[in-house]
Design a binder for these strands. Structure first.
Length: 290
DNA sequence: CACCCGTGGGC
DNA sequence: TGCCCAAGGGT
């Protein structure tokens, strides 16, 4: 465990490094609740570079939650483009609607209230409360979890899911002042220096405090972490079906969707699931639309 | 808690 | 070339 002095050193080193090295990202310029909420939903499991252009177009078209809520959810799914996990677009639209109907059109600043919004879980609520409203929360995304696991615990990777011990550690490490800067700084450190695969320890501001480094970089032991199956999965087929609808200007015939995948059973099952999820709509004339 | 949900780039 | 990974959430 780190001493109090080492914790202070950790805070100072990481925050100072961040102030010198922070990337200039649009959601760090516009830190309104809506800007941060949109960016956080888009960044869930999607890299920054792919989010940038979609975020810019999105904010230009829908500068407020009310602007988005006024349009059909299908427009949100279409504008989501190829970011992946299109249910996030659906949830963002639902969140905008809830913000308008239940919160006077203003993104809530309170963590517990943020948690009630569709698509907003523990991490995103903490991130919005911190980055848009300077709140004090343990912000635990994949980057922060990896940084703390390495620096403090001396292991290469965190557990598959967040543990109680991890929450306690993150909370114990929260600075009393400007915790939101610590949150942003640790995320940035994990994103650009303490990366999963090839960490740039030579550029790390806390290499001298890092327990993982002191131990000689022991590799992850225990069962291999589960990979995400992809080829031939329903996710891939759903993605192909949605791509057809996205690339079309308007509704499409069933025959068009049938070209997306040649196994009838799986294709029909996936189309049904997309209809169930509300990501695809069946029109009265038998055609399909977003 | 395990599993499912898209997409594309890097090595 | 496959495999890993990316500012997670919902069930």
């Amino acid at each position: 465990m780190l001493t109090a002095a080492e914790v202070d050193q950790l805070h100072d080193d990481v925050v100072s490094w961040f102030e010198e090295n922070a990337r200039d990202l649009p959601w760090r310029r516009d830190t309104s609740g809506w800007s941060v909420l949109v960016s956080e939903l888009m960044l869930q499991q999607t890299p920054v570079v792919r989010v940038l252009p979609v975020y810019a177009a999105w904010m230009a078209r829908w500068p407020t939650p009310a602007d988005l809520a006024a349009e059909p959810v299908g427009e949100a799914v279409r504008a989501w483009g190829r970011l992946g996990y299109p249910r996030r677009a659906q949830r963002l639209h639902a969140a905008a609607t809830a913000i308008v109907t239940d919160h006077g059109g203003q993104v809530p600043s309170d963590h517990a209230t943020l948690l009630t919004l569709p698509g907003v879980g523990e991490y995103t609520a903490a991130a919005v409360a911190s980055f848009a409203f300077a709140g004090r929360h343990a912000v635990m995304d994949t980057n922060v979890r990896r940084v703390l696991t390495r620096v403090v615990e001396g292991r290469q990777y965190p557990a598959a899911s967040i543990t109680a011990a991890e929450r306690r550690l993150a909370h114990d490490l929260l600075p009393h002042d400007d915790a939101h800067r610590w949150a942003a700084a640790t995320m940035e450190l994990g994103a650009v220096v303490c990366t999963a695969k090839a960490p740039r320890c030579d550029a790390c501001p806390v290499r001298d405090l890092c327990r993982w480094r002191a131990l000689g970089y022991p590799e992850h032991d225990g069962p291999a972490r589960k990979g995400q199956a992809w080829a031939g999965t329903d996710r891939m087929v759903r993605g192909r079906l949605l791509a057809v609808l996205r690339e079309s200007d308007g509704p499409v015939e069933k025959a068009r969707l049938d070209t997306a995948w040649d196994e009838d059973d799986q294709r029909e099952r996936c189309l049904d699931s997309l209809l169930d999820d509300g990501l695809v709509t069946l029109l009265d004339d038998g055609r399909f639309a977003l």
